[in-house]
């Protein structure tokens, strides 16, 4: 049997020290993705350091409207948190749109952020994959890529990031708190946690070996913001997004978009903040034509493949519909 060591760390310092010692050591959150990858032979860690029971397991709501979410908070708990549901409904909706009730009960916030792509070639060790074996090739480009990315890809990798939660966090300008192996702490916006594949698709984040995510900071949402997470998928539950949109908007008295944030899921190697569209929309009246023009501009950079080309227009339609409905909701309120 393939053996590995398992240690349940007492605190972050011990966990980081253990992982820093061995290049083949990994952190374990809920294990809902890592354990699958180990079974598939994609991951073969020599040491698994369980950080799911560290005391990073609280959700703190502050008076200024911001929140601090511990890295070990379970997805189900976060989705159901009353403060989150009230102040950051987009986050709660994104979590409930992901995985299954069983998985959400064990999956952690940090683990969710660091889950790997579900690209079939990445998960099948009998086939080439530049992410798994750099230089071996990317069969997805000529093969099965319907579920894969259209933005931010490279000729080496077209994998999509599977997280719903991360899309919401990116839309909400969330920041991860990191602890390095040497004990130093720093923060990185969730959006900048991930790196695009370029010619090193094996490198997915800015994390160094031993870096531990300890928490996610959520700044207070803009006053009066309406927000929504809309996910399009083949199956109504227990399926990854074909395309998802996390959007938060606030409208001024003149009916113009005072603040608009749009993040996209299922279309890129990372949760994709649609800054081009946001720029075009800020200060504008959100009529359908304007929304469509902005969404089109965002997707101008798309490099679709034959079987996922439908995602381009679908993303445009979904951005338009999500914001149109948010503004309409605001009007009714």
């Amino acid at each position: 049997m393939r053996e590995f060591a398992y240690v349940r760390a007492a605190d972050a310092a011990e966990a980081a020290a253990l992982v820093a010692e061995r290049p083949d050591a990994v952190y374990l959150g809920g294990g809902t993705n890592l354990v699958d990858l180990m079974k598939l032979g994609v991951a073969g860690p020599g040491l698994v350091v369980d950080v799911s029971r560290l005391d990073h397991d609280r959700i703190e709501h502050r008076a200024d409207g911001s929140a601090l979410i511990g890295a070990a908070v379970r997805n189900g708990e976060l989705a159901g948190d009353l403060g989150v549901r009230e102040r950051f409904p987009l986050l709660s909706q994104s979590l409930l749109a992901g995985a299954s009730g069983q998985l959400r009960t064990v999956a952690t916030v940090a683990g969710n952020l660091l889950q790997r792509t579900r690209c079939g070639y990445f998960q099948d060790v009998t086939k080439p994959c530049n992410k798994r074996e750099p230089g071996s090739g990317c069969p997805a480009i000529e093969g099965a890529h319907r579920d894969l990315a259209i933005l931010g890809t490279s000729e080496h990798c077209v994998a999509s990031h599977p997280s719903d939660m991360a899309v919401a966090l990116v839309a909400l300008d969330a920041v991860v708190r990191l602890r390095s192996a040497d004990g130093a702490t720093r923060t990185v916006p969730v959006e900048e946690l991930y790196v695009l594949p370029g010619d090193t698709p094996q490198r997915e984040t800015v994390l160094e070996h031993g870096d531990l995510i300890t928490a996610v900071e959520l700044p207070a949402p803009p006053p009066g913001a309406e927000m929504v997470y809309r996910k399009v998928r083949d199956r109504r539950s227990y399926a990854f997004a074909l395309v998802s949109v996390g959007a938060a908007v606030s409208v001024d008295e003149a009916g113009r978009l005072a603040d608009v944030r749009i993040a996209l899921g299922g279309v890129a190697p990372r949760p994709w903040r649609a800054r081009t569209a946001e720029e075009l929309l800020r200060g504008r009246r959100p009529d359908v034509a304007t929304l469509r023009e902005a969404a089109r501009a965002e997707l101008a950079a798309a490099r679709p493949l034959p079987d996922n080309a439908f995602k381009v227009d679908l993303t445009i339609d979904l951005i338009v519909a999500a914001i149109r409905d948010l503004v309409a909701r605001k009007d009714r309120a």
């Binding site: 579900r118 079939g120 093969g143 099965a144 319907r146 199956r235 539950s237 227990y238 399926a239």
Partner: peptide, 25 residues
């Protein structure tokens, strides 16, 4: 079942990739 012409197998070969209706459907 997504036939993979290059490899000759099915590109989707688990329940995450081969979708069967769930209760919600």
């Amino acid at each position: 079942g997504e036939v993979d012409p290059a490899f000759g197998d099915f590109a989707n070969h688990d329940f995450a990739g081969y979708h069967i209706a769930a209760n919600a459907d």
